[in-house]
Nucleic acid binder design. Structure first.
Lengths: 334, 334
DNA sequence: TAATGGCTTGGAACCGGTTCCAGACGTAAC
DNA sequence: GTTACGTCTGGAACCGGTTCCAAGCCATTA
C-alpha cells in the first residue's frame, strides 16, 4: 500500500498541512522542517496521488483532444503539433478519437459537462450550433482547430482562399479544363472540402470559365479511390488538362493514375494537391501548404491563454496557407 | 456551480447513498425511489464528477500509452490499433509521447509509482532491467508492444526471423550481393533494427555468403536519408543487386534513388521493405507485413486481461509476420 | 511589561464521490 | 404477540490531497 500524506506527516512529526506546503514549495516552511519532511518523503518512497490532488484543486492538468479517427496523415500531423506544444507544459494529453457522427455528438455532450479535462481541443470536427453553445457555456475552455464556430475560439485555415489560390494559379498557367477531385462534398463531418470546392468555383467564375459538372469527381479519401476517379476523368471525351485534388493523398492517387495511363506529368497533365504532408515534398508535388503541425501548436497556445483568463473571449487565429509550386504543374500543351 | 450528489439527495429527499446506488444501478432501490432520484438528476442537470469517483473507487478508467514521438507511420498504425481496441471499453486513452531517452526514463519512473492510469501500454520502447523490475512491481499492470522484457507481458514481433525471412527469400531468388540499409544499429531506443540485421547476417552465413561491411548503410529513419544512402550503395564499384531496407519508409527512399539513377526495379535492383505500412501496398513494394494495427489491438487485449486478474503473470504473444511478395523483387540479371 | 506583528505550524474542513453499517419497516412464521 | 428475516434506506466514514483559520513562538516597539 503506497504511503499517503498522513503517513509522511506522522513519520516526520509534523502536520499534514506542512507536508503539503513542502510538496507545493510554499515558502513559509522553515528549512529545518522542510528537510525533515523531505527525508520522510524519501524514506517512505512517497509520491502524491494525482487524483486526490485533482479533486481538491479542481484542476486535472489534462487537455482533452478530440479528433477524427487517425487515418489521415493530416490529422496525425496536427496531433503531433499539439503533442509537441503540450510537451513543455504541465498538462497531459487525453485522446478521444471519433469514428462516427454519433460518437462525435456523444463526446461533445460528455465533455461539456464532466470535468475530465481542464481544456478541450477539437480538431477538424466542427460542432453544430447547439453543441457549440453548450461547449461555450461549459466550465472548460474549448478551442477548435481546423474548424470554425462564431462562439468558440478557433485556429482556422481559409479553405475557400486555398481553393481559389490553386485554381487561379492553374488558370494563370493557361489551363481552362480544370477538374476537381475530392472527398464527398456532402459529408456530415468536415466542410473543408466544400470550401475548397467553393474557392475553385469562384475562381473559375471570375475568370469567366464555365464550371462543368463532369469535371467534378467525388469519392472516399483514399489513394486507390482517387486513382480510379482520376482514370475516369482522364478517359473523358474532353479530358481536363489539370486536376485539383482535394488533398495530397488524393493527388498521389491522381499521379498513380497518370503513370498507369502513360500520361506525362506535368507536360500533359498538371496535378496539384492540398495539405502539405511530408510525402508531397518527396514526390515533388505542387500543393497548398497549410502548416498542419503549426495549427496544432497554435491551438494549444490559444487554449493555454484561455486557461489563464477567467472569461475567455472567442478568438480567431488564421494559419496562413501558401502555394508551394513544385514539379507537377506546368502550362498546358498548346 | 455544477450540482453534486448531495444536492441531488436533498432535492429528492433521499440520502446520498441512495443516489449513489441509483447511479450505479444497484438493484436494491425501490422503483419509486429510483424514479424520484432520476427526476432530481434530470431537474438539476446533474452529472457525476469522474475525478471524485476515481478517488473513492481507486480506478481511473484510463490506460496510459507511452510511445516514441509520432513521426513514424508504424507507431501511428500501432496506436490506431490501441485506439480501436479501447473504443469499445470503458477506458480512456492518455498519451505520453517520448522524445528522448531521458524523457522515456522519466515516464517509466513516474508511471510506475503514480496511479495516473489503471494500466500502461508501452509501444516500441524496451525498458532496461531495473526499469522493468520497477514496472513489474508497481501496482499497475504493464504490457509492452513491439518490445520485450522477460519480466513483463509483451506483444512482440520476431524481428530476427523477419530479417532471415527477407534475406532467405532474396538468396532463393538468386541474389548474392545483398545490402542492408537501416537505422543506426546502435540506438538507445529500440533494438528491432539490430534484430533485423542479425537475421540478415544469420541467413547470409547459413547460405555461405560472406557478409561485406560495405553493404551496410546506416542512417536516420527518413526517406531522404535512405535515398542518399542508397545512392552511395548503388555507386559502389561492385554494387548490390538487392537492398533490404530496414523499414518501408527507407525502402521508399531506395526506390527514389533507383528512379533518379535510372536503375530499373525489379530488373536491375530488388528492393524489399519491412513493416507493411499502407503506402507499401500502393507502391507495390515487397515487404514483411508485421500487422502493426493488430499488435496494438493485441496489446490492449493482453492489458485488459491483466487488469482482470489479481496476479498478472508475464505473458508473451507473438504477432506473426509474413512476407508479402509484390513487384519490387525479382531474380538478378544473369 | 504589554502590545504588535511576522513567521511557522497543526489540523479541521473540504473536494464529490462510494461503501458499509445500522436501523426502519413490513411480512411471514411460531 | 413476538421473533425472524428480507427489503430498502440514511448517513458517517473514507479515498488522499489542499486550504485556511487559529494559535504558538519570538523579536521588536511603546
Amino acid at each position: 500500500m503506497p504511503a499517503t500524506i498522513r503517513d509522511v506527516a506522522k513519520y516526520a512529526n509534523v502536520g499534514v498541512g506542512t507536508v503539503s506546503r513542502v510538496l507545493n514549495n510554499n515558502p513559509s516552511v522553515s528549512d529545518e522542517t522542510r528537510l525533515k519532511v523531505l527525508a520522510a518523503i524519501k524514506d517512505l518512497d512517497y509520491h502524491p496521488n494525482p487524483i486526490a490532488r485533482q479533486l481538491s484543486t479542481g484542476r486535472t492538468l489534462t487537455i482533452g483532444v478530440i479528433l477524427p479517427y487517425l487515418t489521415m496523415p493530416s490529422y496525425v500531423e496536427r496531433l503531433r503539433g499539439v503533442q509537441r506544444a503540450l510537451a513543455g507544459t504541465e498538462y497531459d494529453l487525453i485522446l478521444f478519437s471519433v469514428e462516427s457522427p454519433a460518437q462525435r455528438d456523444a463526446f461533445f455532450e460528455d465533455i461539456s459537462r464532466s470535468p475530465r479535462a481542464d481544456g478541450i481541443l477539437i480538431i477538424s470536427l466542427p460542432p453544430e450550433d447547439q453543441q457549440a453553445r453548450r461547449l461555450a457555456n461549459s466550465q472548460v475552455p474549448v478551442v477548435l482547430v481546423d474548424a470554425y464556430h462564431p462562439e468558440l475560439c478557433s485556429v482556422l485555415i481559409d479553405d475557400i482562399q486555398g481553393g481559389r489560390m490553386i485554381t487561379e494559379y492553374l488558370i494563370q498557367l493557361g489551363h481552362q479544363k480544370i477538374a476537381f477531385l475530392g472527398d464527398y462534398l456532402e459529408t456530415p463531418f468536415h466542410p473543408s472540402m466544400r470550401y475548397r470546392f467553393q474557392g475553385y468555383q469562384e475562381a473559375l467564375q471570375e475568370a469567366g470559365i464555365t464550371y462543368s459538372p463532369e469535371y467534378l469527381a467525388e469519392g472516399t479519401n483514399e489513394r486507390s479511390t482517387a486513382r480510379r476517379l482520376a482514370k475516369q476523368l482522364l478517359s473523358l471525351e474532353n479530358p481536363p488538362t489539370a486536376i485539383f485534388a482535394g488533398c495530397d493523398t488524393q493527388a498521389i492517387g491522381v499521379l498513380d493514375a497518370a503513370r498507369e495511363m502513360g500520361i506525362r506529368v506535368p507536360e500533359a497533365l498538371s496535378v496539384i494537391g492540398y495539405d502539405g504532408i511530408r510525402d508531397a515534398e518527396y514526390l515533388n508535388l505542387t500543393t497548398v501548404e497549410q502548416h498542419l503541425f503549426d495549427s496544432g501548436v497554435e491551438g494549444v497556445q490559444l487554449l493555454l491563454e484561455a486557461l489563464d483568463q477567467t472569461i475567455p473571449e472567442p478568438r480567431k487565429k488564421y494559419i496562413p496557407i501558401e502555394l508551394v509550386v513544385r514539379g507537377t504543374t506546368a502550362p498546358p500543351l498548346a
